[in-house]
């Protein structure tokens, strides 16, 4: 019986140590990263997530977009993220501090979306992409999200958001319009952009100035000194 007690406390101690070491210490240091206030722009970064986009983030989570799309731009040697123009710089921990749920993603079936807002097409095209991915990107394996759209009779003026009739099959006299969930999702996607480069992180992660130049070893910023 004594042995069992030893094992019980041993396991408890080991797990608590890993919790304190990995989680608690990061909560105390990295988890208190604050927005950076830029005096010249008179604005704090990362900026507050607008309400519409915040609701879009919930749709993003409930549809499970993060199983195929990461939201983390990586620098360093074995990564081509910057060359792919998935972002102007690698992602820093500070970029995420305003997000209610951080979904970095752990598999790249589709492209990274961290800075999708920069390369996003017009909303009409993005709706079409969600409705019928292969129409926009031939060979795409992204699932069609037709359930985010409603087909309805045109009454009076056609909706300005209706999908292009030339590109999707719509019965005569009807139109395909995005539902509210599609609208907030698109608002969220188009707002994805880490545009600001924080001085502290920038200094530690100087991007390569010319091709072939080796980057510093550190991939991530360290916790700020308090």
């Amino acid at each position: 019986m004594n042995r069992a007690t030893v094992i019980f406390f041993g396991a408890f101690f080991a797990l608590t140590l890993s919790w304190a070491g990995l989680l608690l210490s990061n909560v105390r240091s990295y988890g208190v990263l604050a927005p950076y206030f830029d005096d010249t722009e008179n604005k704090a970064y990362p900026s507050q997530v607008p309400g519409l986009a915040a609701r879009g983030a919930q749709v993003y989570a409930d549809l499970g977009c993060a199983y195929c799309h990461t939201q983390q731009v990586r620098g360093g040697e074995p990564s081509a993220d910057l060359a792919r123009k998935w972002g102007g710089r690698e992602s820093y921990g500070r970029d995420y501090i305003r997000e209610e749920r951080v979904l970095l993603g752990d598999l790249r079936v589709g492209p990274d979306l961290r800075n999708f807002g920069v390369r996003a097409p017009a909303a009409a095209e993005l709706y079409l992409h969600l409705y019928s991915p292969t129409t926009v990107v031939p060979g795409s394996t992204m699932p069609a999200h037709r359930f985010l759209f409603a087909t309805r009779q045109i009454a009076g003026q056609p909706s300005p958001f209706a999908l292009d009739r030339a590109k999707v099959a719509v019965p005569a006299g009807s139109e395909v319009v995005p539902t509210e969930r599609a609208q907030v999702l698109v608002a969220y996607l188009m707002g994805l952009h880490d545009g600001y480069d924080y001085p502290e992180e920038k200094q530690k992660n100087t991007p390569p100035k010319k091709a072939g130049e080796k980057k510093p070893e550190t991939h991530t910023p360290e916790a700020p000194k308090k």
Binding site: S18, L22, L104, D106, H219, T220, A223
Partner: peptide, 19 residues
């Protein structure tokens, strides 16, 4: 038992978390 709890951090290699 001593190591297993810590090994999870290796899933974040290259992610925006402390080096």
């Amino acid at each position: 038992v001593a190591c297993a709890g810590w090994a999870g951090a290796s899933r974040l290699l290259g992610a925006p978390v402390p080096a």
